[in-house]
Design a protein around this nucleic acid. Structure first.
Lengths: 340, 340
DNA sequence: CTGAAAGCGCTTACAG
DNA sequence: CTGAAAGCGCTTACAG
């Protein structure tokens, strides 16, 4: 069943059928009705390969999600899709592996799928730096800063990681903590940001900085932790880093979950012996017992501002890129002991 | 940059370039080398729209995952992809919404992407019953029984939900529990299976069946729980169903997580006041405090048997469908109190 | 082993 | 408002 069959059955040309299918205005009411009747009756679905092969520019929004197992992104995707439905826009979500090249993928998408704009959930700034100039349609990067990259078709919306991390440490200090440890992701932009924010707060409080208590892990370590349940990073942290710190600042909730488990398995109580703070504030952090203290990113606002920026630059392609920072909220949870 | 440019630059016809790109055997070493040199130099990527538009049958495997937020499926996808890499097969993963029509999607895939076979992770038996006859390539359904559907190109691999549920209740009984409640999903095949298994065990043990203590929820309730944090289903369960049952049998780990939280919020201790058993044994169930008692589905075996069946029926398209049942393991966890 | 040509199912100027 | 025709970038008989 092709457009040709529909044309034959409805007694008109293929061009007209195509116009009806794509909601072109210059088709008579009667013809449209006749064609749609046949389309519905036959349950006809146009072949998207042919469609995209020919079509010069589409109107749908591509959402590229880096990481299928990322709870923060899962939350964002839901919200973005809801917003897109409201705005009556088509969207396609593409889930990529954590270690995939999202910009190369976006380039292929532009050649083959011709979206009107792209929303990136997460991304590797290295990939953007080296290849993004090949992309000419409006894009927005969520949760990662892009201001310094200097592309005029790339906006971004982020949480102020540095400041949030800073406040997390201040919160710990206000509860009487003086000796901190931390574990951060080394191979993305947020890790160092959050680390530096934490360090700045320690300094602000006039407390000693013990850098050897801060551990780093990369995507490969994370993969091993998730897939092979190989927690060497965390075991090493416990044995060689933690020392007599009373509080641990974590890169995100995910690593915090795992850390709590490793701590409990080692016979250390949370928060009585060790306090733990996460980052992201994913829904499930409420379900951990003790409930995780964390920095809740405002996913609703991230999604909303991101969509606004994207839709605006689709409408006005020459508008300047915007780099927005949205607010966050510190969730005290129950995983931080009060030492005062 | 198209295949035509590559042909021009390497001084041969487009047909030859296409053959090189698709690893056809009848191309001379020298020509292949020359073409590949140009392809690599230009970073050429063939247009998949054109490719699929023309191609009669592909060799790649499609994996259709129903639900992006499903932790059991996330685990299965990882394992399947690893197996596919070993078998040197290409695969594409398609993530669908929980409430999408996976069979309609598969039909479109067959028309447009022409996969060699399809692996379904989860699926609605109603959809299969009504439309699957339109699909003619080999398929395997994972975690859902398909034997009674009677399609000769559809195999399945499942856990014996009924028996597993039965053993979960026996385990509770062995710990001295006598009064059970439960919460199950109403709109898929597993819910009733697990419910009936649980009930059978209660009967076997000679214990009273109090059906009003068993609550049901559907996909809409689940969506509300996840997206809007609207737990009316669980609140209702607590107020009107639980009564003085000492143990709750849950449809899966996900609902068990939420139930534990609602219980704790209501001031009931787990397991001291109420014991909880989940189902699936997703990795994160180990992270709940107390660690969740659950039925661990053997995802490695599900993935492995599934792939074996799929690859076999791709090789021998006339082989009979197989409906396999794989073993499971009861994880005692820490969420069940010992009443003896 | 290689190339010229037909054609996959659409969209889109172009002409009417 | 409508249709005939060109062409998107590939693959695949067909002929050599």
């Amino acid at each position: 069943m092709t457009i040709k069959d529909i044309a034959r059955l409805s007694g008109c040309g293929v061009a007209t059928v195509s116009r009806v299918l794509n909601n072109h205005p210059d088709v008579s009411r009667e013809t449209r009705r006749r064609v749609m009747a046949v389309v519905d009756e036959q349950g006809f679905q146009p072949n998207t390969n042919a469609k995209h092969l020919k079509q010069q520019a589409g109107s749908s929004i591509a959402i590229i999600v880096k990481g299928t197992q990322n709870m923060l992104f899962a939350d964002l995707v839901e919200r973005i899709q809801a917003l897109l439905r409201e705005a009556d826009r088509d969207a396609s979500v593409y889930y990529l592996d954590e270690d995939a090249d999202e910009v190369a993928y976006a380039l292929q998408l532009c050649r083959e799928r011709k979206p009107a704009g792209i929303m990136f959930l997460g991304g590797d700034r290295k990939q953007f730096r080296s290849q993004f100039q090949g992309i000419t349609i409006p894009c927005v990067l969520l949760t990662n800063i892009a201001g310094d990259l200097g592309f005029d078709n790339l906006s971004s919306v982020t949480t102020d990681d540095r400041e949030a991390s800073r406040q997390a440490v201040r919160f710990l200090a206000s509860r009487g903590h003086r000796e901190f440890a931390g574990i951060f992701k080394s191979d993305d932009a947020q890790g160092p940001q959050r680390y530096h924010g934490a360090l700045a707060a320690v300094r602000d409080e006039g407390l000693p900085i013990r850098d050897r208590r801060f551990a780093w892990y990369d995507s490969e370590d994370r993969r091993r932790l998730l897939e092979e349940k190989d927690g060497r990073v965390l075991t090493d942290f416990l044995q060689n880093r933690l020392g007599d710190a009373t509080a641990v600042i974590c890169y995100n909730d995910e690593i915090a979950f795992h850390l709590v488990q490793v701590l409990l398995a080692a016979g250390r109580r949370v928060p009585e012996d060790v306090s733990v703070v996460g980052y992201d504030g994913v829904p499930i952090s409420d379900y951990l017992v003790p409930r995780l203290a964390t920095v809740r990113q405002d996913t609703q606002l991230l999604a909303q501002r991101g969509m606004e920026l994207l839709l605006r630059s689709i409408r006005r392609p020459d508008s300047s890129p915007v780099h927005d920072v949205v607010s966050f909220r510190l969730i005290p949870g129950e995983s931080v002991a009060d030492l005062i």
